[in-house]
Design a protein around this nucleic acid. Sequence first.
DNA 1: CTGTTAGCGCGTTCAG
DNA 2: CTGAACGCGCTAACAG
Lengths: 347, 347
Amino acid sequence: MATIRDVAKRAGVSPITVSRVINNFDYVSEENRRRVHEAIAELGYVPNTVARSLRSKRTNTLALVLTDVSNPFFTTVARGVEDTASKAGYTVILCNTDESEAEQQKYLDVLIQKQVDGILLVPATSSPESVRFIQKHATPLVILDRRVVGAEADTVLGDSEGGAHELVKLLIELGHQRIACLSGPRGVSTAEDRVAGYRRALTEAGIRVEAKRISYGPFSRRTGYEMTQRAMAVQPRPTALFAGHNFMAIGAMQALREMEMRVPEDVAVVCFDDLPLDFLTVPFFTMAAQPAYEMGKKATELLLARLVDEGPHEPQEIVLPTEIVIRRSSGDPLVNHNVKASVAVEP
Amino acid sequence: MATIRDVAKRAGVSPITVSRVINNFDYVSEENRRRVHEAIAELGYVPNTVARSLRSKRTNTLALVLTDVSNPFFTTVARGVEDTASKAGYTVILCNTDESEAEQQKYLDVLIQKQVDGILLVPATSSPESVRFIQKHATPLVILDRRVVGAEADTVLGDSEGGAHELVKLLIELGHQRIACLSGPRGVSTAEDRVAGYRRALTEAGIRVEAKRISYGPFSRRTGYEMTQRAMAVQPRPTALFAGHNFMAIGAMQALREMEMRVPEDVAVVCFDDLPLDFLTVPFFTMAAQPAYEMGKKATELLLARLVDEGPHEPQEIVLPTEIVIRRSSGDPLVNHNVKASVAVEP
DNA sequence: CTGTTAGCGCGTTCAG
DNA sequence: CTGAACGCGCTAACAG
């Protein structure tokens, strides 16, 4: 492939002049500029970013390390990141850890080697080692969606505690007293914050928090399914379920269906994180929606800001509010349903 | 950050010896090897891939350019790509074009500049310019999911024609004669192949193909919604709908619901591409499932193979079979439903 | 406005 | 088994 020197030779100028034309730097005479452009076109020259990066110490690449690309919540976050980064001239490398700390570390190694300019991290666990690793290599970092204990880093996340609190409060207002909580794994802040919101809502209403109604486990449909089977076996039986995750709520629905329980008639269900309209024949779940796109966007803007002014700074924590959307699954009789149809669970 | 020279100095050897240790090349005395490893650990040295790439002309990076990251079909393809590439020591850059040829070209420019070792492309349209551009820069390429006319390139795709044919044949066997076809845009092979399968099934059954029953438009829920409104207005009214895309089928459901038509009682619906169980409270659509993960995997394997043996070769076209999954939406009375529940569309 | 010199961090070449 | 020299393609720094 043609190099900058080939172009220079063809245009009858020096390589640095070509460089200046490409980068719109300094002043280059119209005449020379034209000839360089001509030569570039004739040779089909494309600048080599690798060489450029070696010199400039900047790769114009960001990395987004997240835990589950299959989840539309993260897909939407990723879009927010992509759009924002792309607009600013950055490419994004997407890495999927499947909630594994080991996978995460493997990716971080590669990313540091690749000299990415910045990292957006949805940490698999709240342990701070990965964060320290990144900081040791002086790579700018923004933590996304989850809190990391003892990490001094910029963080952008949704209001899990608040959202959970509102959701459970809604259930209580609807008359529920025995509410099971299907939570994500211990050691993940989104999971624990949602349990905290659940507890607060109960406590505020003077309802005793019972440990036997709270289960912890991986964020997945299967876990939601199994937890629901166990939760429904606890006597006296719960009349409502709070799932701290969208896929878990789907698993819960399956379990309830197999038990021949109707939702919301026999059991009310609420959950965290919406599923996009594209996937739903009928929107059904009452849930706390996080501004996923906005989260990705905000986090990227913060990261890009850190790239320009290097200096030390107070780590920022940006908490984005959640929005409660009331639909059929909570069984609120007072709500105007925005759809005519319902999902019936046959007996 | 520490460079190979710093490590060398600390270990009391030359830089090249360090290089040999890192890359497991040649023979290095145990003594030196130990000291180098020590120095690496002490300094937290990480090799600089950018410099390495400049020298070696290889970036160990592949690019996956696709049209819609929001669609679980492509998310699954992406996982197949990622897993396979990662196992072989490659990083993947994911680029989302939103079906726009212009976006696609912008990304391809960047990718060529970044010297990626290979490109996996889901082409936004079937015009061959992008393919030629990539080939001109001698970057190995595998086309994914869609055919490009007049392009001499390896291609991996699903059997759209066959899947559509089976699906429509099924509808005919169930007694349907007036079947509307909601197709993706003209100029996209998956859309056109599915229409072709639809036509063949009708023709084989001796049913006249009516142009007024076939609509073309972007792959989206909204399009499916609008097309369904129009399709249902055609007299005599169709008794079944074939949607060439999962999101379109969702849009169709919404339109039918608003018209107070029940599925499958009043209208049968079948479509292409499944939605993962994680998103579905109840699996509902009869559809042709493509092996998305397998497609990503196969395509990546093919690409990686091309990277090692450079020589020219016959372009390969790998067509993966689709699997018909029969569920409620087609209304087949003979099928054993694998779920007890149903989605009812209220009058 | 333009060119020369030097070097980013690494790996290949060839000589110890 | 080890090292010195050179260059990948580009641009910062400094002339002119």
